[in-house]
Amino acid sequence: MATKACLIAVSIVVGVSATQWPTGAGADAETRRAFPSIPKPHDNRDVVVDGNSTAPGSYGGYSATDVAAWERETYKLVLEGARVFHDANAIGSGIGMSCGTCHPDGAGTHPETYPKYQVQIGRAALLRDMIDWCSRQSARGAALGADDPRTRALEAYLTAQRQGATIRYGKH
């Protein structure tokens, strides 16, 4: 089982890197269709200086294209998180459980309460520590290190789902 989980984990990582630079051909379209309620990133059009065509200089202003690119890249990270969150194989679950099985729309994960003492882990934890714990313990899946692309995507998705929540670190 461990070997199997390992193989799945490896193939997923490879899979992610192979699709890490989608060209906008709609790689995330299906995820958007499944989870249309994921909020878009903050609208940054107010920082656009002098329209899209006039170069604003080296520093101090950004174009509409810049802002669109920021939003696109950020949103894609979140969408990738939504995909991983709903895929038991992506986290190598040995029992067919994905994150989304127990946490529809990321509910009950309260990313705005981290860092906090997490009794399951037995110490003060960051959100990524709990993601790792849940993957290993609740889903009997892979250990997700802090730098694992899946961890980063999951953290992005969970944070996006709590758009507007007040940060209350340490809250239980």
Partner: peptide
């Protein structure tokens, strides 16, 4: 495709 999720709006 894939398993059924409660929050899948499709």
């Amino acid at each position: 495709q894939g398993p059924l999720h409660a929050d899948d709006r499709r």
